[in-house]
């Protein structure tokens, strides 16, 4: 455990300056974000740097924040440095109307299906992906089901609205 979160943060700030931001450490995992145009540069730097060596893509997925205008979709990368055993979380936010994010498939072969899954459920358009089509849902589907505007419950039921789940409403 020679590599600490502070060192990673310093190296990133040294290289990218103001562009990497919002550093935090929830449950000990360094989390930060960058503009979506920069995602490949950041991933490449994390991969190539002789001290950082984040060469294992553990996971890639998206999160939908419908109330955060202009930054509705977050694409989250979990990276792992297997040598020093350090994990980091890297996020890029994108507008939901033009959800274009560069693909990481050139760097990680494993990103192929992960990005297809993310596209399938959130509609993130990975620019440059070799085969960006639906993977788990049927090909004919014309919406992205994990977005928050598609509720799970039958909307005619009043006993299952959001306040029963601790969000909004009077019971809380």
């Amino acid at each position: 455990m020679s590599l600490t979160n502070e060192q990673i943060q310093l190296k990133l700030q040294e290289k990218f300056g103001e562009q990497v931001s919002n550093f935090s450490e929830p449950f000990g995992m360094l989390t930060f974000e960058a503009p979506k145009e920069q995602n490949l540069k950041v991933l490449q730097f994390l991969y190539d740097d002789e001290e950082l060596k984040f060469r294992f893509l553990t996971d890639l997925q998206a999160v939908h924040y419908p109330n955060d205008k202009g930054r509705e979709l977050a694409v989250v990368y979990h990276l792992h440095n297997l040598v020093d055993n350090v994990r980091i979380r890297f996020k890029v936010f994108t507008n939901i109307n033009t959800p274009d994010v560069f693909t990481a498939t050139q760097l990680f072969a494993t990103a192929n299906w992960m990005e297809r899954e993310t596209y399938d459920f959130f509609g993130v358009n990975f620019v440059g992906h070799p085969n960006l089509k639906r993977i788990l849902n049927v090909d004919e589907m014309d919406y992205f089901p994990m977005r928050k505007e598609f509720p799970l419950e039958d909307q005619t039921r009043i006993d299952k609205d959001d306040e029963m789940f601790g969000r909004g409403g009077s019971i809380n």
Binding site: F56, F108, A109, M114
Partner: peptide, 8 residues
């Protein structure tokens, strides 16, 4: 090993 790591 390289391909396996790259494939996650």
């Amino acid at each position: 090993a390289e391909r396996a790591l790259n494939y996650g």
